[in-house]
Nucleic acid binder design. Structure first.
Lengths: 145, 145
DNA sequence: ATGGAACCTGTAGCAACTACAGGTTCAAGG
DNA sequence: CCTTGAACCTGTAGTTGCTACAGGTTCCAT
C-alpha cells in the first residue's frame, strides 16, 4: 500500500512542497505515479526522506546530504569517509557556537547598560553607531519563522 | 570633501555592491551625485552605514535594523523601545545557542561511536536513517563561505 | 588627449524553501 | 452513476542578504 505525498508529508514532518522540491533537485527519486499522475511512494522513499530530514535537523546542508547519500548509494562507503564529513561539520558547528557566545556577551552588556528610561539617549544605539575595530563575524541572521 | 563609493566601502568594510543594495532597498539614503552620476557620500552616510554594519555583525536582520533606524530617524525613540528590541534579539540568540549546543552533543556522540574502520557499516549513517521522535530544530545550515 | 581604474545600471544567481494560481484526480456519500 | 470537495498536479515567483557578472560611462593623472 503506497503512500500519497500527503501521508508521506505527515509521517516525515516534511512539507509537501519541500518533498516535490527535493525531487526536482534530484535528492529524492521520483516515485511511480497513479494513472492520474499522483505520486505513490514506497518504503524506500520514506527511509530516504527520513535520512534527509534528519540530516537537515543536524545542520547538514543539502549538499552535505547529497554527499552522504552518494556514499550510501555507491554502497562502497567506509566509516572513515562518513566520519570525516561529520567531523568537518562538527567543526562548523563549533565555530558558529563560538560566534554566538561572543554575540550573547555583547548583547547582554548592551542591555545591562540600558536603564530602559523614557529618554531618547540609549547606550545600545550609541554602541551601534560606533564601529568595531575587532570585527565580529556577520553570522546570517536566522530567517525568522 | 565627499566620499566616493569605493572609499566608503573601504572605511566601513562593506562591499560596494552591498552599499548599492542597501540604497535600493531603502536602508541607506541615496546620496547626491557628481555631474557624471557618481555617488558622493557625506558624514551622515558613513555613520548610517556603520550603524547598519554593526547591527548586522550583532546578528540583527535588516528588518530589525530598519526598525531601529526608524526609531532613531523619528527622533522620538525611548531607551525602553530599543531595549525591548534588543532583548528580543538576545532571546533569539540564546535559543540558537541552545540548539547548537544540543547539535554539538549529538554530532560528538555520533563520531565517538564511529571507529573509522574501512567497513561500510557506520553508526553515523545508521543514526541518520533513524527518525527522531523528539525533533531537533532545522536550523539553517550556514551558507558555507 | 589618452589610458586605465573606478564607477554606473540592470539582471541573474546562491540556499532552501514557501506560496501562490489555475487546473486535474481521487474517493466517499447520495 | 454522479457530485462534491479534499487532495493532488505543474509551473512560476517570492523570501533573505547578498554577490557576480555584462556592457557601458566617467574620472583624473599623465
Amino acid at each position: 500500500m503506497p503512500l500519497t505525498i500527503g501521508v508521506l508529508s505527515k509521517q516525515t514532518g516534511c512539507n509537501i512542497e519541500t518533498i516535490r522540491y527535493y525531487e526536482r533537485i534530484g535528492l529524492l527519486p521520483g516515485p511511480p505515479r497513479s494513472a492520474g499522475g499522483h505520486r505513490l511512494y514506497g518504503e524506500v522513499h520514506l527511509k530516504r526522506l527520513t535520512f534527509i530530514r534528519r540530516g537537515r535537523e543536524l545542520g547538514f546542508t543539502l549538499d552535505d546530504i547529497r554527499g552522504l547519500l552518494g556514499l550510501v548509494d555507491g554502497g562502497a562507503y567506509t566509516c572513515a569517509e562518513v566520519k570525516a564529513l561529520t567531523l568537518d561539520h562538527l567543526g562548523e558547528v563549533r565555530r558558529k557556537l563560538a560566534d554566538l557566545r561572543r554575540l550573547e556577551q555583547v548583547l547582554k552588556h548592551m542591555v545591562e547598560e540600558c536603564d530602559g528610561g523614557a529618554v531618547p539617549d540609549c547606550p545600545v544605539i550609541d554602541a551601534l553607531f560606533r564601529a568595531t575595530r575587532d570585527r565580529m563575524p556577520v553570522s546570517p541572521g536566522s530567517p525568522r519563522p
